[in-house]
Simulated assay, not measured.
Amino acid sequence: MALDSGPGYRVKNHLLGKALTSRRLGKEKLSNRTALGVLASDCISSSAYGSEQMLRVLVPAAGVAAFTLLMPVTGAILLVLLLLTLCYSDVVMIYTRAGGSYVVARENFGPDIAQVAAVALLVDYVVTVAVQVSAGTNALISLAHLTGIGWSGMDRFQLPISVLAIAVLAYGNLRGVREAGRLFALPAYLFMAAIGMVIVVAAVRGLAGNLPHADLH
């Protein structure tokens, strides 16, 4: 029996789609808008929980003064992101094929350094998924608490919700580049729009002088 005719292969085709031939791989490219929504989400998603995580570290050490340190730390992080963007803008013009940091490191420093870059990427991906899924699950549970309609018992579902989110992420990526783009681009753009609305509303309320103030006592 051929390997591609067994029940396991048929189940795989049903769930993930048929395997792509070499001729069809060229058609799996994403449009600029879709690619921006998919590839930029890893960078911008930190704005959803980055400030909270910084305050978790700074508040025990500096108390209320941690809030005055938040913007300088954020500025330093933005500076690093700017430098990375400038570097990548040159790299992508030279290394136009797939491979990312691994290919760049291999061609400039050899295979040993390239393996270090590959391991660093794997660790980064695992940590990114773990942190972002945990932060997203916490945000959903906090939203349930804010509704005040008896959803406070959702705390015990944090782990199952996190596992479900990871399963959805894995499934979308296993479906292929185009399928992942369709699945993840829209939420990314909705997130960008939500963050933009937060900034605009905060600016308007700040100019009007009615920003809420926390009670430090």
Rank of each mutant, 00 (worst) to 15 (best):
G209C: 13
T34E: 03
L122V: 11
Y9L: 03
I199P: 00
S51G: 09
R178E: 13
L25V: 14
F191M: 14
V131P: 01
N32R: 14
S101L: 04
A48S: 09
K29F: 13
R24S: 12
G63F: 04
G150C: 06
A167P: 03
G99R: 04
G99I: 04
E179C: 05
S31W: 08
A35L: 06
L140A: 10
V57G: 06
L122G: 10
A105M: 07
F184Y: 07
A48T: 02
L69Y: 04
I44L: 15
S101I: 01
R10D: 13
V57A: 13
A120H: 09
W151D: 06
S31A: 14
T96G: 09
R156H: 15
V123C: 11
G17H: 12
F109V: 07
A19P: 07
G196I: 11
Q158A: 13
C43S: 15
Q132A: 02
A130M: 08
E179T: 05
F67G: 02
I77C: 14
A48H: 00
A114S: 07
V57C: 08
S51M: 05
S22Y: 15
T128K: 04
A203T: 11
V129K: 01
L39F: 08
A165T: 09
A194W: 10
Y125I: 02
S142I: 03
Y49W: 13
L216F: 13
L82S: 09
M154Y: 05
S5P: 00
K18C: 08
S5G: 08
L190F: 13
Y171Q: 05
T34I: 08
L169F: 09
Y88T: 10
Y88W: 13
Y125H: 06
V198M: 15
L58P: 01
S5Y: 07
R33F: 14
L86V: 06
Y95A: 02
R56S: 11
P212R: 06
V91Q: 04
L30R: 03
L84Q: 08
T68N: 08
A188K: 02
V133I: 15
A48P: 00
A40H: 01
N13M: 12
